[in-house]
C-alpha cells in the first residue's frame, strides 16, 4: 500500500451538460493538511462530495487507503459549512456528538464520555447539555468539529467550514484546526474560498480552476511552526505565497469560454 491516504485519478463529474470537474487528479499523503482553493464554480464542493461518497462521479475514481470509494467510507468525517442545518436541533450538543458513535458500539456512558472529551478539546466543556440553537455560530461550528473528532476519522473533510462566521471567530477556528491536526495527526482536506486562510492553515495549497474544473497548481507551504495569526501572516513567505495563490486563483477565474457570472 502506498503512503498516499487519498488518490484521485481522472475524476470527472457533470451535471447534465455542465462539466464541473474534468479529469482531475490529486494525491494526498497521510497526515497532510491540504487546502483546496479556487473561484466559485470550480467544483470544490463537488470534489469533496465525491470523496465523501455522497456523489457518484461520472468518471474516474477516488481511492481512499487503497480502496476505491463506493458509498460513504467508514473512516471519514465531514464538517459542513452550514452548521445550523447539519447539527440536529432536537438533540442536545452532547447527543449530537454522541449519535454517530452508536455504530461503534460501547455503552451509553462510554459514548457520552467520548462526546464530552471531544467537546472539551474544542473548548466547549460544560456546553453538552445545551441545544445547538442556544449557542453562537462559532460555537455551533465547534460542535460540528467535536462531532467529527469524536468519530475518530482518518480523513477529515471540511467544506468551507468558516464561511459563515465573523472574522475573529474565524481566526480562532483556524487555530483550532491547526491544533487538531497537530494533536490527532489525521489527514485533513479543507475547502475554502479565502486565499489567506488556505495559506495559513495548509501544508499544501491546491488551486482549482473552472471551465472545466481541475487542478491548476499545487504549492507547498513552508512556514515556521507553530503558526500564529499575527506573526505568520506578517511573514515574508506568507505574503509572497498568498500573492502567488491570489494570482493563480484570478487566472483560474478568467473563463476560457464565455461564461456569464453574477
Amino acid at each position: 500500500m502506498s503512503e498516499n491516504m487519498l488518490e484521485i485519478d481522472g475524476l470527472t463529474h457533470s451535471y447534465g451538460d455542465h462539466t464541473v470537474l474534468e479529469k482531475m487528479s490529486l494525491r494526498v499523503p497521510r497526515g497532510e493538511l491540504v487546502s483546496i482553493v479556487g473561484p466559485s464554480g470550480c467544483g470544490k464542493s463537488t470534489l469533496l462530495r465525491c470523496i465523501a461518497g455522497l456523489v457518484r462521479p461520472t468518471g474516474g475514481r477516488v481511492v481512499l487507503d487503497g480502496t476505491a470509494i463506493d458509498g460513504v467510507p467508514d473512516e471519514l468525517a465531514v464538517v459542513f459549512q452550514d452548521y445550523s442545518r447539519s447539527l440536529l436541533p432536537w438533540l442536545t450538543v452532547r447527543d449530537n456528538v454522541a449519535l454517530p458513535l452508536r455504530r461503534r458500539g460501547g455503552s451509553r456512558a462510554e459514548r457520552r464520555a467520548a462526546a464530552e472529551e471531544a467537546l472539551t478539546s474544542v473548548g466547549l466543556d460544560g456546553a453538552g447539555r445545551k441545544y445547538p440553537w442556544q449557542l453562537s455560530g462559532g460555537m455551533q461550528q465547534r460542535v460540528s468539529i467535536a462531532r467529527a473528532l469524536a468519530y475518530r476519522p482518518s480523513l477529515l473533510l471540511m467544506d468551507e467550514p468558516f464561511g459563515s462566521v465573523d472574522a475573529q471567530t474565524r481566526e480562532d477556528l483556524e487555530d483550532l484546526v491547526l491544533r487538531v491536526h497537530r494533536d490527532e495527526g489525521m489527514t485533513i482536506l479543507l475547502v475554502t474560498h479565502d486565499i489567506d486562510e488556505s495559506v495559513y492553515v495548509g501544508d499544501r495549497v491546491v488551486v482549482l480552476g473552472r471551465d472545466p474544473g481541475g487542478v491548476r497548481a499545487e504549492l507547498p507551504v513552508h512556514l515556521p511552526a507553530p503558526r500564529d495569526q499575527t506573526t505568520t501572516r506578517a511573514h515574508p513567505d506568507f505574503v509572497s505565497l498568498r500573492t502567488e495563490v491570489s494570482t493563480l486563483v484570478r487566472g483560474a477565474a478568467a473563463p476560457t469560454k464565455t461564461v456569464v457570472h453574477e
Binding site: 461518497g53 459542513f80 440536529l88
Partner: peptide, 9 residues
C-alpha cells in the same frame, strides 16, 4: 447527508 456521512442508518 450528515446521517449518511456518520453512518447513521
Amino acid at each position: 447527508e450528515t446521517a449518511r456521512v456518520f453512518g447513521i442508518t
